[in-house]
Design a protein around this nucleic acid. Sequence first.
DNA 1: GTCTATATAATGATAGAC
DNA 2: GTCTATCATTATATAGAC
Lengths: 232, 232
Amino acid sequence: MRSTVEDLTTRARIRDAAIALFGRDGFSRATVRAVAADAGVSPGLVIHHFGSKEGLRQACDQHVLAQTASQGKEKADPSSTRHLIQDYLNHPGQYADEIAYIRRSLGDESDAGNAFFDAVVDQTQGIIEAGIEAGTIRDFEDVRSTAVIIASNSLAMLVLGRHLSRALGTDSGPGTDASETGGISPDLLRQLTLPALDIYTHGFYADARFLDAARDALQHNNATTQGREHAP
Amino acid sequence: MRSTVEDLTTRARIRDAAIALFGRDGFSRATVRAVAADAGVSPGLVIHHFGSKEGLRQACDQHVLAQTASQGKEKADPSSTRHLIQDYLNHPGQYADEIAYIRRSLGDESDAGNAFFDAVVDQTQGIIEAGIEAGTIRDFEDVRSTAVIIASNSLAMLVLGRHLSRALGTDSGPGTDASETGGISPDLLRQLTLPALDIYTHGFYADARFLDAARDALQHNNATTQGREHAP
DNA sequence: GTCTATATAATGATAGAC
DNA sequence: GTCTATCATTATATAGAC
């Protein structure tokens, strides 16, 4: 989609530089001057094109969202949400800036972060419903909540990637291409795939005692609450 | 531990105001002036006590870490990592600032965030090993990786809490005390507890076909890699 | 469209009185 | 220890020439 040669319009070059810098340093730390320098233009031109720094941010939001949305449509096939992250990582460097941008957006108060998370949840829910139909995924009572949990677990690898690699000692130090994607390296993903799938296949607990206990506790809680409603 | 009345030293009051503001707005957005205003002192006094804004941040890191570390020691009993988050939430408001601060730290490049994540992983690993011994948790091949995954899943609720509540429509709007803890409300936790425990108990997939497929793929990958090493 | 030069505001930090 | 006043820097944004 994007040509490797630098034949972009100046406006697009500024926007891409901003996406990279906002993702790397965060929106408030990244300055218009730095964006301009990276894009090879004057600071004034950045404002001329986008009106303000906030306008630049919205243009970045919109562009990253459009990129990942079209990407999501193409890759709607794979059976596991895990593949969503993995697919991005298989394009080494090409989507690194967008990944970092989304990672920041998920932490900030951002329209792009909200939309991206919701899109992942919706896609996950679709996968679960199809999997239940096909008999490959268990038939859950609350599909929506389950989808939120699975999406949350998957995106945790994106948001906490830096910590994952450090905790596993797979960190190859700064400057590696892993740092560009928030710490998730192909090696790290390989190390975590089987343990994660193991939990998703056979569970984490040895039996259902914790689940049963929680069910009882919640029912007792509800009963107490209802009782208090009648006698406050 | 902390008295509710405002009998803290001025230095501690400034530090607590900074923890609250850094957690709410992020380190770069929060200004020394705003911290001073919230603490009811002059901006100059903040610098006088902590040398610089960075010095103030380090004092906050140190204090939050000490708070959560001692808390972690006390609450090392509960069998599930999930309880770690739940315990904090059971102290409504009392640790809200520290939670928000840690949430920011996990996203930023921060010593406090690193230390906190590692502490959670270590504690999780201990819980898993004890659970294996007691027969309540499955006997995993790679306990360390499993602990990292479980910790990542648990902390995802902290980092992505805002998105979780929005995706589930449990959002009570801004200004709620849920927004102070990053979007995690007791209601939200209640809604997610059973689905999460269900996955942790019975798994997510209906059978082992995905796990087996991944095992085969990884072995094939390794074989290919080894083959290429011999014949590059 | 793009640049240079500048206005304006806010920030972190300092100096010195009390 | 605490404040007021101020400095120096940096940021966003504007104005006008080319």
